[in-house]
Design a protein around this nucleic acid. Structure first.
Length: 421
RNA sequence: GUGGGUGUAGCUCAGCUGGUAGAGCACUGGAUUGUGGUUCCAGUAGUCGUGGGUUCAAGUCCCAUCACUCACCCCA
């Protein structure tokens, strides 16, 4: 055991990768139902991209990025998130325009240098959706609808949707001023960290988990009171959209986002059953109507979310997992008696594979007993027994491994199919 | 970056105030030479994370170090 995996990375061994793929496929299917298209981008991106988009003050840029210098002296980062990368890609291909509404989704590894703990890794997977070129509040609702659909699909209980609006270019400065004013006057109970943030990132103080900070911020001015008419109207429409979609939500004025590019609507799906330890946000998102400006484009309204895939996996009950991996498991194992019947069985195995049935046959185990044991060990639903009697009659015996019942059918793919469905 | 916890068989762990290592599961074989998952019997399995120290004697005590893990912080 000379080599170990890099801290904060994960191996998904065969028994774990099954659930990984099953959940991923289902998530992507749900997103595609809403009309989104998949985009694939590189893992390596220019370092400066993230400074521009995420913000210099953010921890992601400050201390969490994996950065290295390439042979030509350029600084390269392993991407810490995807939205900025999608924008880079659209901009580079002259697609960051108001010509058309773009609905994009992704599933990608991202990298952040943090101390790992439950639900937090250095290399982890994010899935996400983006609707670009729309200010319509229905799109905010649609985005949250997808999040809700994913969570419901996996029957994850105790997840609450928290929403807030943090205002636009017009109203946020005023709110910020009021907040800084308040915090400066009431800074004695703030933690050291928050004291520093008063001037460079005051909004983040609102979601500090430190008890004395929570207390200190209790009477702070709230964003909604400072929203301009447009923002207030938009926020109302978002809530209407959610109501119409029958999606429950909690208005939580302390929801702010850690990345600079957010504006107006922000939201988080929070797991409150304690499954995720202290990493309770399962999906986070909002609007980023000004992000396009960082790419020298005009304002292009956009809304989206991203979800931590590992957190989703952790949140799903084992019973649900067992159910959804069922279709990925091997259906049948061919069992034979000797060299002659092995050829007969092998032939049938190929027939079944052509018919899209996941089938396995061993060539290493002598004797029916061991082959049956193998079938049992890999949780095959059926054992298909090909002995000499069966071969001579051009038949097979099909044993249901759960009930133990056994039936004999003709060696015919339709008959076999019928017997195991 | 800062704290706490844990490193003993492939896995989950037990091992009291120091006296040179155990259980369950898994695995292999057998009871059962055309039938697995139950049961019974037997077997394989460990430089006790690594290095040093104290001691007649260290899995156990001390120091260092590495790894894992949880929490702070941050976020998905």
């Amino acid at each position: 055991m000379q080599f170990r995996k890099i801290k904060g990375t994960n191996d998904y061994l065969p028994n774990e990768s099954v659930i990984f793929r099953a959940v991923r496929n289902r998530v992507e299917n749900i997103i595609e139902q809403f009309g989104f298209q998949y985009e694939i981008t590189p893992i390596l991106e220019p370092y400066e991209l993230f400074i521009r988009s995420i913000g210099e003050q953010s921890d992601i840029v400050n201390k969490e990025m994996f950065v290295f210098t390439s042979k030509n002296g350029k600084k390269i980062a392993l991407k810490p998130e995807e939205t900025a990368v999608l924008y880079r890609s659209l901009s580079e291909n002259n697609l960051l325009t108001n010509a058309d509404i773009k609905k994009l989704f992704y599933f990608t590894p991202v990298f952040r240098y943090e101390r790992p703990q439950k639900g937090r890794f250095r290399e982890f997977y994010q899935y996400g959706v983006e609707i670009i070129n729309s200010y319509n509040a229905e799109r905010d609702g649609e985005i949250m609808h997808i999040g809700k659909a994913i969570i419901d699909s996996f029957e994850i209980k105790d997840v609450k949707l928290h929403i807030n609006s943090i205002g636009c270019k017009k109203c946020r400065p005023e709110y910020k001023k009021a907040l800084i004013d308040f915090l400066s006057k009431n800074d004695k109970n703030l933690c050291e960290n928050c004291k520093i943030k008063i001037h460079n990132n005051p909004l983040r103080i609102l979601d500090c988990k430190n008890k004395s900070c929570i207390e200190a911020v209790k009477n702070a001015p709230i964003t909604i009171d400072y929203l301009c008419n447009d923002c207030a109207e938009h926020f109302n429409q978002v809530k209407e959209s959610l109501d119409r979609r029958k999606i429950e939500y909690i208005e939580n004025t302390n929801i702010v986002r850690g990345l600079d590019y957010y504006s107006s609507t922000v939201f988080e799906f929070i797991e409150e059953g304690g499954k995720l330890g202290s990493q309770s946000t399962i999906i986070g998102g909002g609007r980023y109507d000004y992000l396009s400006n960082e790419f020298d484009a005009e304002n292009i309204g956009a809304v989206g979310f991203s979800g931590g895939f590992e957190r989703l996996l952790i949140s799903i009950d084992k019973s649900v997992k067992d159910r959804i991996i069922d279709e990925y498991s091997i259906k049948a194992v061919l069992v034979y008696f000797n060299d002659e019947t092995m050829k007969y069985a092998s032939n049938i195995a190929d027939m079944m594979r052509e018919a899209n049935i996941k089938t396995e046959i061993t060539f290493e185990y002598q004797g029916i007993k061991k082959q049956m044991k193998f079938a049992s060990r890999i949780n095959a639903r059926f054992a298909i027994i090909c002995g000499e009697e069966e071969m001579n009659d051009n038949k097979v015996k099909i044993k249901n491994m759960n009930t133990g019942k056994q039936i004999e059918v003709e060696r015919n793919i339709d008959k076999i199919k019928e017997a195991i469905l």
